[in-house]
Amino acid sequence: MFKKILAATIAMTAISAQALDAPIVGNVESKCVVTLDRQGVYGNPSASVLSTDSIDGGVQPVIRYDVVIANAYKAVITHPSSFSQSPALTDTIAWTGSTEVEAVSDAQMSAYDTSKIEYDSTTEIDLEYTGSTWFKVSSEADYGISKALPGGTYTAIVQANCIAI
């Protein structure tokens, strides 16, 4: 019995000596970083309207894109088209919004406003220059036909993605 166990141990040792796992590890750091620079706030200028416009008492959210490689990414920003949190609503909401360049780290990025592509609630901008670009997003919700919004907390989401081209 003892002899059999010893033989098995030797055999296992021989097998582990012959096999080797050589892992290759690589870390990829993102070359496009999206950061929320300013939190948005809805103002309530009338009973049926929520707006991020400063005239309406709101604050437009600002999203910053930091790009290390030029012509490698595009910014895809979608302004809200629904509330993620709200009281129970019984009527429809008309959503409007836009995405504009707030500030740039390179004057050439100022052309993003003219070269952007807009469809539905989404704005796509090819990030052609390295550096940082600040995009401001406006959003407005009109409830029903001038119908008063029920009291409560309303939250809407702006989706900002950096997609490799």
Partner: peptide
């Protein structure tokens, strides 16, 4: 130097 020729006006923040 920032060249804004042919570009719309905007705000720039540069480091």
């Amino acid at each position: 130097t920032d060249d804004w020729t042919g570009l719309p006006g905007n705000s720039i923040f540069k480091v």
